[in-house]
Design a protein around this nucleic acid. Structure first.
Lengths: 165, 165
DNA sequence: CAGTAAATATATACCGAGTATATATTTACT
DNA sequence: AGTAAATATATACTCGGTATATATTTACTG
């Protein structure tokens, strides 16, 4: 979502070089979001230009180190504090549904069916993942999974509602 | 979300010119998503390049008309049929929560509080909107609002869960 | 041990989506 | 008649993300 802010979050902990940010990111999301390496460097360039990070020098292996500036910390705080907005259309399925309606989409039922099947698969997958994590102390990831499951329940309830109309 | 496909959906109904697509879009989302006019024309350029739309000519007022091609219709169908995926991190608040956790964010409670307040405002707003729409025959929008309300309920349930930890 | 596959490390060109802005004409209003 | 708003199109720019090139180091395998 916001790779920029996640890099600031990683640099808040300690100075890191580009590749370390890539691996740090992937560790944070448990490898569930593959990050293109190039994006790290272009994002760092913009962060440096905006003076949210600095490059005080290189480490022993000649890798360029980045540190977060005070302005960078402020940017990170205010991003964390700012609530996320929920436009009605941020959710892609709602938007798709709107477009389907626009073209008086005769196959709406199959569209709903496809979506529901995917979501049931998602539920099974996440439930499985949750079981795998039980015992391990990865509380944050467990909570995210809980949240995603709540969302999926709401989605399926909605799909059943609109399928009846 | 995908302006490109919504333009195809609008052109599926009938040929239109650029400005008509802008107003058509805004009518479709009930003015709730302001669309930058420039985006319409750049998107149309790409659609034309990819042969998903054509420009057979101009209307009486010399406005360039666009029509959807067969390839464009196929693109529209397959987009509509394809279920949307739900990565754990597509939801920005989850991702923000993950970043907050990374920096051992001491103000997590205020972050959660801010988010909950915004969502309660959203619920009030949408409930109000739903009442305004009752009587009118705008069934699609009513359904979208129902869906968004279900999501918001799930979100608040989750915020209460994680606030306790 | 030589060879090679994988991991480490960085950089750049490119594309799609979205924003800001410029500009010209027509319509509506006062 | 004058002007504000709506209609209509276009272009430059930024950001986020993908693909790809490339060089070095580490790990493994015959």
């Amino acid at each position: 979502m916001s790779v920029k802010h996640s890099l600031l979050a990683l640099l808040y902990e300690k100075p890191r070089h580009g590749y370390e940010l890539k691996t740090g990111f992937e560790e944070m999301v448990q490898g569930m979001w593959p990050l293109n390496a190039g994006q790290v460097y272009t994002t760092l360039d913009r962060l440096e230009r905006d003076e949210l990070v600095e490059t005080p020098g290189h480490d022993k292996k000649d890798r360029k180190l980045y540190t977060i500036t005070n302005a960078g910390k402020e940017e990170l705080w205010s991003w964390l504090e700012e609530p996320v907005g929920r436009s009605l259309f941020k959710d892609e399925f709602y938007f798709k549904f709107l477009c389907a309606n626009q073209v008086s989409y005769e196959n709406r039922q199959s569209m709903i069916k496809n979506q529901k099947e995917t979501m049931i698969r998602d539920i099974l997958h996440l439930t499985h993942l949750k079981k795998q994590l039980s015992g391990k102390e990865n509380e944050t990831m467990k909570m995210l999974i809980e949240g995603a499951l709540l969302h999926l329940d709401a989605d399926i309830k909605w799909l059943d509602m609109i399928a009846e109309v």
